[in-house]
Structures are given as C-alpha cells and as structure tokens.
Nucleic acid binder design. Structure first.
Lengths: 256, 256
DNA sequence: GCATGTTTGTCGCCTGGATGACAATAAACA
DNA sequence: TGTTTATTGTCATCCAGGCGACAAACATGC
C-alpha cells in the first residue's frame, strides 16, 4: 500500500461532518444507509477516538486492504471516497458501497478475526483514519453511547444490503439504475453541486463511470450505457460536468 | 397475529444453545453468519435478558411482523424457524435468511425507529422470545460484553449479505444453489439428521421447498427444480425424507 | 375414502441482458 | 503537441433463465 502515514491526534478540525438530510425514496429513508458515524459523536468522543488513530493518505486507486488480508483495523473516511467491493473467481467486481467522509467501515471483519472479505480502494484522493481493532473495542467499551451508534450503523448497512439484494433479485436494470441514482442523490445531497444550476433537480454528486454503476447493480457496462442514454432521451436525467443530475425524480420513482 | 403470549421468565431451560461447528466452504467460514447470540451469553446475561421477554408461540405461517409495521421489538428464536423476506412491488418474494434457535433478529429496524422493511413469518411451529426495544437497549447498556456480541452478529450478517449479493451478481443458478446448500449444511450441522445414514454426507436439515430455494437465490421455481434434478443425477446430492443430503461436497464446491 | 390444496417434474417459447468487437471521444501523459 | 489510455456509444449475436401451462405425485382436511 502506497499510503503515507501521519499521526492524526490534532486534526479533528479537518472533519467536515456533513449532516445528511434524508430523502424519501418512496417507502424507505436512505440517508441512514450511510449514517455518518463521526458526526454523530460528541467532541470528546471524537477526540478520544482519533487520538489513537493514524491518518492514511491515499492516492486514487490505492488499496487500503484486499480480500484475504488480515488487517485488523477499522477506518473512518476523513476526506474523499473509499470503494468497497468483492471480486468473483471470474474477476467480476461487485461494489458493495462507497464510503464518504465521516463514515465508519471495516467493522464487519474484525470481530471474527478472520480475513477481509472485500477490497477497499480509494476512489479518488482520500484520507482515512485508521484505528486498531483493540483500540476500537476499548473505545466502544468506554463509550456505550458510541457502541450503540456503531450498532445503528451496522443495522443501517444490513437494511441497505437487504434492499439491494431484493432489488437485484426482482428488478430489471432500468429500475435498479433508477433506485441507485435516487440513493446516491440522497447521500450526496449535502455537498451542494458547484454548478448549482437548477435547484429543482437532484444532483448525484459522485463521479461514477458506467462501469462503476454496472458493478454496483450487477449489470454489464453496455447495458448501463444504453439504459442511461434512454433515461437522458426521456429527459429524466442529464449530465453536468461528469456527474448525473436527476431532472425528473418522479420519473425515476415510478420505475420502482 | 395469532400468537399466544406467555411470560418467559423461568423457561431458560428450554433453550438448546446448539453450538455450531464451523464448516469451511472454501474461503469463508459460514457458521458465524448465523452466529448464535443466546448461547454466546453467560447464564446471568440470559437470565437478565429473558426476564423482560415475552414468549410468543407461532403456528406455521403465522406472521411475526410485516413490512410497514412499527413493531419495536427484537426477537430470539427459542424453537423452530423464522423466515425473513422482502416482497417486491410485483409480489416477488426474496428470502434474506432463516433464523434458527438462539438467533437474534429484528435488530436492524429498531434503531432508526422506522418501519420494518421485511416480513417475518414462522416457517414451522415456532416459539420466539420478544424483547421490547427499550429493554433491549437497556440490557446492552448494562452488559457491554453482550453489546459487543450484538455487534458481532450484525457484522456477520453484513458479511453474509455481501457474500450473497456478490454471488447473485456474478454466479449462475447452479453455483448459487451449490453455495446455498453448503451454507445450510453448515448451519444445520449441529442438529444431526435423524435418519443418520451415511456420516460422510452432509445434511441440509431444513425443510426447503423448491420455491423457497428460488426465493433465496433469486431464481424461478422451475429452474431450481431442473438444476436440483441435474445435481441428483450427477450423484452430488440426494433426497432423504424431505430434505437434501449432500453426497459429494467436493462436487458442489468445485462449482463455486 | 374422497376432495382439495400443495409441491414437484417437464415442455416450449421468448426475451432481457451478457458478450465481443469496434469506432468515437475525452482525458492523461510525456 | 502528439501519443497513449480511459471512457462512452453502437451493433449484431447468443443464451440462461423467466414464464405459462400441465400432469403427476403427495399431503391434508373433512
């Protein structure tokens, strides 16, 4: 891993805990699927937690860990974005989710002490706080409130994964894309789109290549390209810079 | 809900905490995906937890809760089996998992205070301990060890769901069935098959209709029937009573 | 014992979407 | 500025698996 390491004790101020306003996608509130761990903690808790952390600086495409690794840390994104994905024996990549600033991840593996099941790589220039398993467990023990929040995070993830699973099993590609876009629009709604043209439209403020979307919804790149093009022709979405804007949220929603 | 309610304070003895021996399915230990919460607790913890629980008695197909409900309890299976599933707008059912004795479930929804996202119904005659949200949170606060275990359970579930998701996105039906059977063989390995014919073969000691398998792996019933038949012709599996025995685990594993 | 409901086994048809192959851009780099 | 490498757009081909429709085999209740 080509990450630079610094101590992070005093860089609490760096964290931009973006509170997520929730967007209802019909029957499910998605915001909590990416519940922001760090910003839900008190100042003291943050201080306590980050004091024993190291700050890792990652360039785009740097690996944080790979499936099979025995790394026993949990991570919190300080800045940037981490992609978590699986790779099938045939090399097909399935993205489980993206982690944005303030989000806690890597928790799932540290309990069983087993190997990591997924890959984590920086989707862009990214900085993450790395906290050793032991320190994290100690922290949770000392801060029951925080432990409850960790449970909440995991719960949200269970719900989100369940939802994705249901969608993958029953919906067609168009619907899955629609759901995905609404979901990302919800979680990136806090970071206002710089080219804030129309306030009525939702901004999917993440750089997603068609291949990423394909890996996220379990489809082929070509199908994503085609489907997205249809959606654009219909005027449901449009491209701004290199990200997607949802022009007619209703149109997407009615695909659900 | 047609469940009978009794107080459960003194029925601790009923619980058969079956310790699961782990079966390695190649690179993943599956047993922890159904980690047994109750049997991982100490006697005092069990006592504390169940004292504030109610025992619900369910007949096969009784609903414990439905998507949209506001029930705010967590549950622990005492006996029998609870099926957790989603239903798509088109009526397609996707089974997330089965809960066996000792397992804790229903945790995911109680934090956000939102509606239940899934359906929970008794797969057979089943008894579950029902614990109110407040009591459960209080319990976790008072027993940090137990809170850690709850985190472990959720972590395992996140891993399992991620695995399923990856499989659904990349594997064909045959492979998904193979994976599923190995997984169920692992979790039901504790309850020895009564008709314990051959010790070399693994027993999937759960009553699964083809429709169930289909809903579990996101396929159609017909395809499951056909695929299972192939597997039988090949001698990889066979039917005993009404459940499946894995004759050649290697054969299934090499489909992964 | 009969009737009704459930689960399994089998077909043929049909389509959503995977796959491979390229051309056309757009971005990165030297 | 020219060269290389990502990314997007398009098409023709092919097939795994969904779907409807039955028949046979079990169950279950009356």
């Amino acid at each position: 891993m080509s990450a630079v390491t610094k101590t992070a004790a005093n860089s609490v101020a760096v964290i931009l805990g973006h509170d997520l306003s929730s967007i209802d996608d019909g029957d499910v509130t998605w915001s909590d699927a990416h519940a922001n761990f760090l910003s839900s903690l008190s100042q003291e808790e943050i201080q306590d937690l980050l004091t024993c952390s190291r700050l890792l600086v990652l360039k785009p495409r740097d690996h944080l860990f790979r499936a099979g690794d025995h790394s026993k840390d949990v991570y919190i994104v300080a800045e940037g974005c981490i992609r978590l994905f699986k790779v099938s024996p045939t090399g097909k990549e399935t993205i489980l989710w993206f982690n944005f600033p303030g989000e806690l991840f890597g928790m799932a593996e540290i309990w069983s002490g087993s190997q990591r099941q997924v890959y984590a790589i920086a989707n862009e220039a990214t900085r993450v706080y790395s906290i050793r398993r032991q320190d994290f467990i100690k922290f949770l023990g000392a801060h029951p409130e925080a432990a409850m929040k960790a449970i909440g995070i995991l719960s949200a993830r269970v719900r989100a994964l369940g939802h994705t699973l249901g969608g993958l099993a029953s919906d067609n590609v168009e619907t899955r894309i629609a759901r995905l876009l609404m979901r990302f629009a919800a979680i990136s709604s806090a970071t206002r789109c710089s080219s804030g043209v129309n306030d009525a439209e939702l901004c999917v403020n993440v750089r997603l290549r068609h291949q990423d979307i394909a890996n996220l919804i379990g489809a082929s790149r070509q199908t994503v390209t085609t489907t997205l093009l249809q959606l654009r022709k219909l005027g449901a979405v449009r491209m701004v810079d290199h990200h997607i804007h949802i022009v007619q949220a209703d149109h997407l929603r009615c695909l659900f």
